[in-house]
């Protein structure tokens, strides 16, 4: 698919990180990274294990102590509380999916709509989400712990969509899933972005897939951004091909 113009980076970015540092106690995880997610596009954050990808998302959601500046729609949200950041319209699907395993599928989705009041709109969103994931409709009373890994990942994405977010943060949606399922999930992410213009920042180790659906991408190495560019540029880039695409 055709990536939107990547030059919008300096225009109105929906999410913008500038010189963000983060640390867990004495252990520093991010050493000043800057990135931007333009409205309506998918941005991928690539890198090896421990490069700081997850920490970057956690910095956006206020789940790790952060220095520097995180701006969402022009508002400073650095070190905001996770629940406040969520209420601003950022849906974060954490790594490991954060499935509420003892709750049913429907209850999980309801939790996504927790801060919303309009029952009718919530109903419509349930229909919208089950449009992407039809199996959820007939299995809505199933307890989530009995779902497969892939289904739990879809449920986590569905829960995020129920928030009616303006930005979706996805942390390694492929983690621990079979290749076929992973491809399916990435197709759905691309579809959602195409149909709803939902801005998405996706963290992935599987660069191959991520670059297929992303417009732009950043490559992280030990807490620093070492490469950035449009997805097509990066997929042609020598070192990316070597290290992350396995070609």
């Amino acid at each position: 698919m055709a990536p939107p113009d990547s030059a919008s980076r300096n225009g109105h970015a929906l999410l913008e990180l500038r010189d963000v540092h983060a640390s867990y106690g004495p252990i520093r995880a991010l050493h000043g990274i800057s990135l931007a997610v333009p409205a309506g596009s998918v941005v991928a954050l690539l890198g090896a294990n421990g490069a700081g990808k997850t920490t970057t998302l956690r910095a956006v959601s206020g789940m790790v102590k952060t220095q520097g500046s995180v701006q969402f729609e022009g508002h400073e949200i650095t070190n905001g509380r996770p629940e406040d950041v969520a209420r601003l319209g950022i849906a974060h699907v954490p790594s490991g999916r954060g499935t509420m395993t003892q709750l049913t599928v429907w209850e999980n989705l309801q939790m996504g709509a927790y801060v919303r009041r309009d029952r009718g709109a919530i109903r419509r969103d349930f229909d919208r989400v089950t449009g992407y994931f039809p199996w959820m409709r007939e299995r809505r009373h199933q307890v989530a712990v009995t779902l497969s890994g892939g289904e739990q990942q879809m449920l986590a994405i569905g829960r995020a969509l129920m928030m009616r977010p303006r930005l979706l943060l996805l942390d390694e949606p492929s983690l621990g899933l079979a290749p076929l399922i992973v491809r399916q999930i990435f197709e759905i992410i691309a579809t959602i972005n195409r149909e709803e213009q939902l801005s998405t920042l996706v963290v992935e180790q599987n660069a191959n897939l991520a670059l297929k659906i992303a417009a732009r991408a950043y490559v992280l190495e030990v807490g620093r951004i070492v490469l950035e560019g449009s997805a097509s540029e990066l997929s042609r880039h020598e070192s990316v091909r070597k290290s992350y695409l396995g070609i």
Binding site: E83, G98, G112, Y114, V115
Partner: peptide
């Protein structure tokens, strides 16, 4: 229930 069982996921959907 969600907040007590899954504090992190709950905060991420806006639960105080």
């Amino acid at each position: 229930r969600a907040a007590s069982l899954y504090p992190e996921s709950s905060r991420l959907v806006g639960v105080r």
